[in-house]
Amino acid sequence: MKVRFLPLLILVSLVSVHGEDIESALKSLKDKALAVNVATRVLEKDQVTVWHTESSKVTISGKAVSLKLSGDNVLILADITPYMNADGTLLLVAQGEVYITSSPDGGVKYYSTMKSVPVKAGEKVIFFPLGVAFDADENVYTIEVEIEVLPYSEMIKRKEGITDGSR
């Protein structure tokens, strides 16, 4: 049976637990939690961003964050799974499925891929689910998914730093 966790509920909680064992368990989970920041962009020629959205999720090592990008003629399903090594480095695995209709007859093409890349915490990785055109012509748009994985504790520090800076 596949065990599903709900770390985001735990890691960021002010839980009303009783007992030191619970608190220590939560602290342990919180220390191992990872924040996955996802910035999705649509770029036109010369890498000009014409559309942009951001999202942030909390997970733990080995648990994927599912990303679903749906457009009129494209559906992209991507599972981004961070694996934390003992030395603190990360292995980021992106499993992608692409359904795309590009022909006038409406036929659907399906592609699947799995890519992995070792990264450091906070290092940004870019996923191109439809490939990348370095010398794109006009009217050719690239979907770029920027992924950043960092420990949840650092994420909290970063947010607190932003908050302090804004005061």
């Binding site: 990008l69 795309i100 590009s102 592609y111 891929t113 996923f127 439809l130």
Partner: peptide, 17 residues
């Protein structure tokens, strides 16, 4: 995703630093 433009597959999906 935005309804326009229509997207095309430009090649193999890539994952890059």
């Amino acid at each position: 995703l935005p309804s326009q433009p229509a997207f095309f597959l430009m090649g193999e999906p890539k994952l890059l630093r």
